[in-house]
Each structure stands twice: as C-alpha cells, then as structure tokens.
C-alpha cells in the first residue's frame, strides 16, 4: 500500500511521537523535509511523494471578472453542500463609494457582498455607477497559512498541514468540535452538515496528487487563479512569473499566519 523510507532519526521520532503523551507534534524544518520521502498511491494508483511538491495558489485580483465559475466548480468537485451557507471558495464583490468632500476622507463607504458566494455570478453593484469610486472582485479560499491557526488548535490532530503545502481535514478522525472554524481568521472553514466534521478547501488534494489543477483553477477563464508547484517551477511557469513580477500581499498579515496564498492588486479594504 505504501512504502516508507525512514532513516534512523525519523524512526526514533516516530517512536517518540507514538509513545509520548506529552510529545509536541514534530514540525519538520525545510531542510529535514528535503531529505524525506513518503510514498502513497494517488487516485490513479501511481506513487505520489508529498515531500517532492509544494503546491501553491496565488491570485491576481486584476484578472478576476467575478463569473463565479470557480465557486460552482468547487462545490461540484468537492461535494460541498449547495446551500448558500457553506463554501470552500467564494468570491466577494467590493464597491467603494466616492467620498463626500466635506468629510475630508479619501473614500466613502465600502460595500461588500457575496450573494450565494458568487455561485450564480454577480449583478452590477446596487450603487449607481456615478457614485462608485472603485469596484472589484476578490476570490477567497483557504489561505494555506504557513502558521495555520486551524491546525494549531485542533485538539486531536484531525487537521494538519501536509508536507506538500495543503491543509487537510481527516474526516475519519475529526470529532467535530468546531474549534478550527473559530480559529480561522479568514472564515474558510465550516462544519459539514452531513459529515458532521470540519471541512475546508483541500486544494483539491485528489486532483493535485494526480497532476491535475484544482477545480477552481481549471475553470477560471482569465487565469486570475494561478496554481503551481514551488518545487518544480518551470522557467516560464505562470507561478514563477507571478512571484517574480507582481507586488503581492497577503490577507490579514498582522495576525502572523503568513498566508501562502498571495494576492496581487489587493485593495486595503479587503479583509
């Protein structure tokens, strides 16, 4: 089923991990990770080594047209409940009004909405066009935090950061306490109404391990979502171009979660 190549240090670590009630979760450093191998079978029966990849998604806000294809694809691909209360990814529409000069402010009120998460696309903002200062769409998804608060607070180790950069939920092990939902600063988690466990974006783990793109990236018509593998960046990989040329930002940087999902062209109003 799977072959593990472990060196001695790892075996020791494993023992410690299993035996010690007080052992702290071993967090491997980058250098250690580079040496490791752990093979398992992906969905088509090929060997897949999570230590050989580092998946990443970045977003170019300037390219998002708010068609909501990604929201649809995500729900269909991942059996996300169809109601307007549960989303692994959604799109927000920001409309910033012009300021009344008398107030001395640069800009007026910010109106955000996400009707049905953008599943059905977006109508034009309700604000009359002449009052709009600027308006844009922002796709949201799991921010793939480097220091993910959700896996930090999971009491049983049912949600975790994988070596290849995803943050997953073990549906067979999650006891459904909801702590991770509270801990996620980005509102990217929800309790699955049928499974009764936490659920979130998996970066379409079943797809990326097969060498496919996540569903949202697959259907995005404008390449607003760019997906790639940091450990295998080709010379003109769109991800490389993005990282090298765009001035990108992350969401809520003050929380120290260090999201790996970066946004190019992020507006200050986006939270």
């Amino acid at each position: 089923m799977k072959q593990t190549k472990t060196n001695r240090r790892e075996a020791l670590k494993k023992l410690a991990g299993l035996a010690g009630a007080v052992a702290v979760a071993p967090k491997t450093t980058g250098a250690e990770e580079a040496l490791r191998r752990y093979l398992f079978k992906n969905g088509v029966g090929e060997d897949y080594d999570p230590f050989d990849h580092k998946w990443l998604m970045v977003i170019d806000i300037e390219r998002c047209i708010g068609c909501g294809m990604c929201v649809r694809a995500c729900k269909a691909e991942n059996e996300v409940p169809r109601d307007p209360l549960h989303f692994r990814t959604w799109v927000e529409q920001y409309t910033i009004k012009k300021a009344d000069v008398a107030t001395g402010r640069i800009e007026g009120e910010t109106i955000v909405r996400s009707p049905n998460g953008g599943y059905d696309g977006f109508p034009p903002p309700e604000v009359p066009e002449e009052e709009i200062l600027r308006s844009f769409f922002v796709p949201k998804l799991c921010n793939l935090c480097h220091h993910s608060p959700c896996s930090q607070v999971c009491p049983v180790g049912a949600t975790f950061d994988t070596p290849d950069g995803a943050v997953l939920v073990d549906y067979e092990y999650c006891m459904g306490c909801g702590f991770c939902v509270q801990a996620c600063p980005y509102g990217c988690r929800y309790m699955h109404p049928e499974r009764h466990t936490a659920d979130k974006c998996t970066l379409c783990y079943h797809r990326i391990t097969r060498g496919l793109k996540p569903a949202c990236v697959e259907v995005c018509p404008t390449q607003a979502r760019i997906f790639g593998d940091l450990k295998h960046l080709g010379p003109d990989d769109p991800l490389r171009t993005f990282i090298e040329t765009k001035k990108a930002q992350s969401l809520k940087p003050h929380l120290g979660t260090e999201p790996r999902v970066l946004y190019a062209g992020l507006d200050k109003e986006v939270r």
Binding site: M1, P50, D170, E172
Partner: peptide, 14 residues
C-alpha cells in the same frame, strides 16, 4: 508518521 496526524489520511483524501 508524518506529523501529529494520521498519515493514511493523505492517501484516503487523494
């Protein structure tokens, strides 16, 4: 095996 979680979950989710 990989961290504080069930390593088999990776394969299951895949």
């Amino acid at each position: 095996e990989l961290g504080w979680y069930r390593a088999a979950a990776l394969e299951e989710l895949a």
